[in-house]
């Protein structure tokens, strides 16, 4: 069953008189429990697509459905509520509030639920345990390495137990080792916890971790067989 259904989506941005058409009639599905890598040149619309799926932005026309709910038709208040339950989002950097500890950062989404303090504590500890940072609860972002920061952000993205986790170049600022850690963590989230994961990345090695690779170019997708991707990478 498709968790994300994108149907005939048009998206254009207006900059003064100029109009930029990012998508003109995009349709695609993302399966429940899949692990998808979105690739493509800069400016091809990868971030825009993630934003549309997360309801952070609205399509010019067409529909975006996630888990049967029509995201593209919700009011801002409905979207906020929906997002807090169904989507975890991780950016390339600056995900964390610098004034809050790792624990407090991860707790943020739970503040929007009816959970008691005790239940929240428990869940935050579990989430930080999953990302292997249960010994860094009281650390502030500036006391963490880049890789650790991203793992805290991932803990925050999964703490409210959403089905869908969206990551926009989560390893873009990380060194090779930290990238590996983050990527294997995502693999585990997909395998063990059955999270549907969509990751935007420029890094072919990162994309290899995904079960499906989509190449976005000039507003359309080209599905890439994993072997073909590897071969292309090897040749390049």
């Amino acid at each position: 069953m498709a968790l994300v259904e994108i149907r005939n989506v048009h998206k254009s941005f207006r900059r003064d008189a100029e109009r930029i058409d990012v998508f003109s009639g995009l349709s695609m599905d993302i399966e429940q429990g899949s692990f998808t890598a979105l690739m493509g040149p800069s400016g091809s619309g990868k971030s825009t697509l993630l934003n549309l799926i997360a309801g952070l932005d609205q399509p010019t026309s067409g529909t975006v459905r996630v888990g049967g709910a029509e995201v593209s038709a919700m009011t801002p208040a409905q979207l906020a509520e929906w997002r807090s339950r169904n989507v975890g989002f991780v950016f390339q950097q600056f995900n964390l509030l610098p004034v809050l500890t790792a624990f407090q950062n991860v707790e943020l989404p739970l503040l929007l639920t009816r959970l008691s303090k005790k239940e929240r504590d428990e869940r935050v500890r579990i989430a930080l345990g999953v990302v292997g940072l249960d010994d860094r609860l009281q650390h502030y972002p500036r006391q963490l390495s880049g890789g650790q920061e991203q793992r805290v952000a991932i803990a925050r993205a999964i703490v409210a137990d959403p089905t869908l986790v969206l990551l926009d170049e989560p390893t873009g600022q990380l060194d090779a080792r930290s990238s590996q850690e983050v990527l294997s963590l995502l693999g585990r989230l997909n395998d063990e916890f059955n999270k549907t994961i969509i990751i935007v990345t420029h890094d072919p090695h990162a994309a290899e971790r995904a079960k499906r690779q989509l190449h976005l170019d000039k507003g359309t997708f080209v599905e890439q067989a994993r072997t073909a991707g590897t071969a292309a990478g090897a040749v390049g």
């Binding site: 997360a54 906020a80 997002r83 807090s84 929007l112």
Partner: peptide, 16 residues
């Protein structure tokens, strides 16, 4: 600004 945007992606509503 950035932190407010992050809170919004987490699901903090405009009213909150």
């Amino acid at each position: 600004t950035r932190e407010l945007a992050v809170l919004k992606t987490i699901g903090f509503s405009d009213r909150r």
